Computed example of a mutant assay.
Amino acid sequence: MKENGYSAILLKKAIELINTLDTKALVIIGIQPKNLLKMKIPVVIIGNEAEEKPANFHYLRLPLSLGTKNLVNLASSFMITNEIIHEKDLFVYVTPSSLGIRRAEKTVKAKDEFFLQIEHIFREVLELAIELSLEGREGKPVGTIFVIGDTRNVIRHSYQMVPNPFKGYKINILDRSTREIIKEFAFLDGAFVINKSGRVLCAGRYLDIDLKKTAVRIPSGLGSRHLAAAGISKLTKAIAITVSESGVVRVFKNGKIIFEYNPRLD
């Protein structure tokens, strides 16, 4: 989602809509306003933070690859969750190529904890998970797990199923040129383990969870991959992101699903 020559025009039109209708917020996606207007209503910016940060401005560091529909849905859930606006309130959203009006509603399965996790490493892994959901590997669906943070305890509660392809290499999720390398190993059974700096420590890691002792509960229909992700997120301080073969991306923290999204339905 790149800015173009229409961004300033669309943003101006969004302001006109706000002044005409009884709207309660403005959501700006993928546009960096050069001169922030003195808005009286709350403004949610998805993308990079602006230099000026008025008190009524809120920032969501979500990957723009989620697409407009889902970013608007997440912004809606975020505003309701944080009591910025109320359910059924009108808000305006604007992107570099579109402008729209929505009523606030919680249409995305995202809990409060999800919005608190949107740091740079988490964001990069989430974006990679979404890419895997959409692209698969060689055009075929692929399921995998990414475990982020608290690596010492994660390693203690897991073991290597196959030789670790990342041993001795400094492959970092922040280096976009390594994405294809990581995707190549998504076919391995087991999990990727990524430290808090973004380095991929291993792939093909079996999460050795005693589910009876851990006592995690997940919705019926979800299999061992999701049980393992829930279990490791409860046993450690790590966050787990799963990609199912049906394309659904889920985020687990403290043994619970805090985010659920299917990019293929966008």
Rank of each mutant, 00 (worst) to 15 (best):
E16N: 13
I18C: 12
N19M: 06
N19E: 15
T20F: 00
L21T: 10
M39V: 11
V43T: 13
N48C: 04
F57E: 05
H58V: 00
Y59R: 13
L62I: 12
L64A: 02
L66W: 03
G67S: 08
N73E: 14
N73P: 00
L74T: 00
M79H: 04
N82C: 01
H86N: 12
K88W: 02
D89Y: 12
L90R: 14
V92R: 10
V92M: 10
P96W: 09
S98Y: 09
L99P: 09
G100F: 01
R103I: 03
D112F: 14
D112S: 10
L116I: 12
Q117C: 02
E119L: 10
I121F: 05
F122N: 00
R123Q: 11
L126T: 11
L132H: 08
G139N: 13
K140G: 01
P141F: 06
Y159N: 13
Q160K: 04
V162H: 03
K167M: 07
R176Q: 06
S177K: 13
I182F: 09
I182Y: 06
K183T: 05
A186S: 15
A186E: 03
I194F: 04
K196F: 02
C202V: 04
R205T: 07
R205H: 02
Y206R: 14
V216N: 05
K234D: 04
I239Q: 08
I241T: 01
V249P: 11
K256P: 02
I257P: 12
P263N: 06
